[in-house]
Design a protein around this nucleic acid. Structure first.
Lengths: 338, 338
DNA sequence: TTGTAGGCGTTATCAA
DNA sequence: TTGATAACGCCTACAA
């Protein structure tokens, strides 16, 4: 596979290589005639320009980087990664940008800041909210390097981000349960350190307060086992709640188990509604009422925000919040909708 | 952010830029003294070499491409993508290779073959078995372009690939059920056109035959609903099987539902064992016996095979098969292991 | 409308 | 041990 370069084309077409270059970029200062001729030769010789040489000449990598922490296995990203990447590629591709995945290893001088940012391997960066340190975000801002966070970074101002509107989302779940006649609501969450727990539980409390009600919030590991344990505790101590909002499908699954073991009827005795809509959620017994999060759109928005910043169209800080969708199923439907 | 180049360093250090280059590559023909001096200046001026310029000079992109079809939503990759990428990055990263994800859109002259392969944007390619056309694989072979397939391509010879040993895997599941005393076994699969169905059902049949037994094989869409439907059909027509091997967690989930609705006891009346080990599998009722597939290792093997071919260490065609792991849970354990 | 020449930031090959 | 100098393959004034 010997590579044919712009020079070969120039020779074969009997023109200067600058003319060939102009043809490739469809410059208006080239006669239609030579354009045709050069193009024919390019096709005939099976020529494709070297993207690397173009990048060097243009001083742009035409690549956006997606930074992940591959050492974290049970990540939010784990389940949504493919879809998010799909969304990103969906806007980057048509703009002739490549998407590269980079593991963020802080080890040595080979870290992403040097490799990708200073080494100009990428023109911009997208990452999950919690993988950058404070210093790293500051450095990126200082370098005026374009980047967009997926998920809002709590406490960090001046960073553009896209996120699901978690607070609104738990409001939707909560109000749905209230509409179904629930009055003693409980929110079962995950890791308290995770900012998602904060925003979701906040929406829960706020919705209740708007109706003059109150509800308790619990947190744990966010696993099936933990959801089950938390629910069992609730059943033993104090009055049994009649509506449960959970932070994830895992916790919801544990809750369903605990309730069934206790012989409670769902949704007659207790309604359950949860964040996330995993593929199996329609098939639990009973099927789970879920809040669907459009992660493909999350990727699209993140990438389009980034592209705006890369080409300089937009400079300011911006946060876009996406609306979740409530999907009602049996676990919360007391009077089946018609 | 004004960029400091090799020239700036050369000037500041009072040496030729070729010397600076040598220092960067730790050439033995540079005195330790100047090395120290140049390095100090590089650090002081916060210099990082331009990877693009390096790539052009070295005629290598130091990038491997992962080709996916992002238009296919419910893909095998959907669930394992993150882990596979993790494995790939795990070998590419330390070798200073970047990993870029590319959507395979055949549209126009902007297809991957031109953009990535001919445009030399990547040094090699990894893709899922079924996204390349026959012509494309032939063209890659013709160009002697390094690529590795995840999953064996049925009928296509001369392509290096990594795969789970599916035939062996269904053998493991089948024999496990036989050991538990099952005698009337059935295999419930997915799309018959998918080569995975072929290899997995083959292993099922082969295992039974080795013991002088036979079992029926059914196929469908591979969804929960379809699994449920297939199982119900089985319960109505003919003798009820006492052991079910399913091609995926989805089908298994449907099977569990059907069996429970029919009032059959698991595993007393019917045992269930399935391919794949999704996060919720330990929490179904009863917990599912699964065949765990090490997708991280899949990524590792694919990437290391590719790297061998990129640097020319290995040239021949090779297929690596990975051993799955049987994880026994209640759905198939008649006499609880001690 | 086309061609010439220099630049993008490295690496590599020789001389010095 | 170092330093010119020419690649690498493309883009972009500017000149013809």
């Amino acid at each position: 596979m010997k590579k044919v370069t712009i020079n070969d084309i120039a020779k074969a077409a009997n023109v200067a290589k600058s003319t060939v270059s102009k043809v490739m970029n469809d410059a208006p200062t080239v006669s239609p005639d030579t354009k045709r001729r050069v193009r024919a030769i390019m096709k005939q010789m099976n020529y494709t320009p070297s993207s690397i040489a173009t990048q060097l000449a243009r001083q742009s990598s035409s690549t956006i980087g997606v930074l992940v922490d591959l050492s974290r296995k049970a990540d939010f990203l784990n389940h949504f990664f493919y879809t998010i990447i799909g969304g990103i590629e969906n806007v980057a591709g048509p703009l002739h940008y490549e998407v590269t995945i980079s593991n963020i290893q802080s080890t040595g001088p080979d870290n992403f800041m040097n490799r990708l940012v200073r080494g100009r391997k990428v023109d911009g960066l997208i990452m999950e909210k919690s993988i950058l340190t404070r210093e790293q975000t500051e450095e990126l801002k200082l370098l005026e390097f374009p980047f967009v966070s997926i998920g809002q970074i709590p406490g960090a101002e001046g960073i553009s981000s896209v996120d699901i509107d978690n607070t609104l989302g738990s409001g939707m779940l909560t109000e749905h349960l209230l509409e179904q006649g629930c009055r003693r609501l409980v929110f079962l969450g995950g890791e308290p350190a995770d900012s998602i727990f904060e925003s979701r539980s906040r929406g829960f409390r706020r919705s209740l307060k708007a109706r003059g009600l109150e509800g308790e919030v619990f947190c744990g590991e966010g696993t099936v086992a933990e959801g089950c344990r938390m629910m069992k505790n609730l059943l033993q101590s104090g009055p049994v709640p009649d509506g449960i909002v959970t932070i994830s499908n895992y916790v919801a699954f544990g809750v369903l188990q605990a309730l069934q073991e206790a012989g409670l009827r769902i949704p007659a005795d207790v309604c359950v509604a949860t964040f996330d809509d995993y593929p199996l959620a329609p098939y639990t017994s009973p099927p789970l009422t879920c809040l669907h999060l459009d992660t493909f759109e999350l990727g699209i928005q993140a990438a389009s925000m980034l592209m705006e910043r890369i080409d300089g169209t937009v400079t300011g800080v911006e946060t876009r919040l996406l609306l979740p969708t409530l999907i009602t199923r049996q676990s919360s439907l007391r009077q089946p909708a018609k």
